[in-house]
Amino acid sequence: MTRDGRGTVPSQADDPVIRISGVRKSFGRQMVLDGIDLDVGRGETMTILGRSGTGKSVLLKLIVGLQKPDAGSIHIGGQEIVDVPLERLNEIRKKLGFLFQHAALYDSLTVEENVAFPLARHTDLPDAERRQRAAELLSRVGLEGDRAKMPSDISGGMKKRVGLARALALDPEIMLLDEPTAGLDPITAAEIIELIGELGKAGERSAIVVTHDLRSVEALADRVALLKEGSIVIEGSFEEVSQSDDPFVAAFLRPTFGHQHV
């Protein structure tokens, strides 16, 4: 089944690269995630939508093991990541590329050193080859001339590009992007979305994009999941969700999808 240039949507029979089952998470008395079940297939981009403060970023942090769920399981590539030794978790993390909401660049390192950091830590590449690989990655995000700059010297949009380049350094199987367009002007946001579409979705790479930016959904999503009050209220293909009669779903998606049905 193919949709308009967005690639093949995997069938239900394919093993998911990410399987989230019954995940719950609370902070004190506040329930943030209340029984989340979600699968992401190979080569698929899953967009997780929801209002601010509904646990979207928390879900991403659970997936990469930065926090532990109170209940439930998370499997990446068929391997459980909850309550596993750090060494095993780190082996799984090498297959992930994470773009933080504000890029989270290391401010004591240059742009080039930031991008080369995963290569320096996890490959045996000599220094010259690492720098060449970092230069290639920076070239793909349009920042080849800014290699020597410090993170404090570049704009928010440029930081996102560097963050994206760093996330791609080890050619990950799965990309996780936390609000990739947050804080950016519309033009820069559109450029980042386009870049993610070109680079982040290459080949069999799967992706989870957490956002409340509907332009990102429209441009990137193979499947959409909408979070409300800790639960997924609807999940499905782009077309299925956009045709929902649920008032909350319609109100959330209407600015983008409403005019398409006129």
């Binding site: 930065l66 993390r93 504000h102 989270a104 660049l105 995963p118």
Partner: peptide, 18 residues
């Protein structure tokens, strides 16, 4: 502290470095 509030420590962890 500044690394913590700017997610740099989390970024190091996600890069599979302790």
């Amino acid at each position: 502290g500044s690394m913590k509030v700017t997610d740099q420590i989390d970024a190091i962890a996600v890069s599979a470095v302790d």
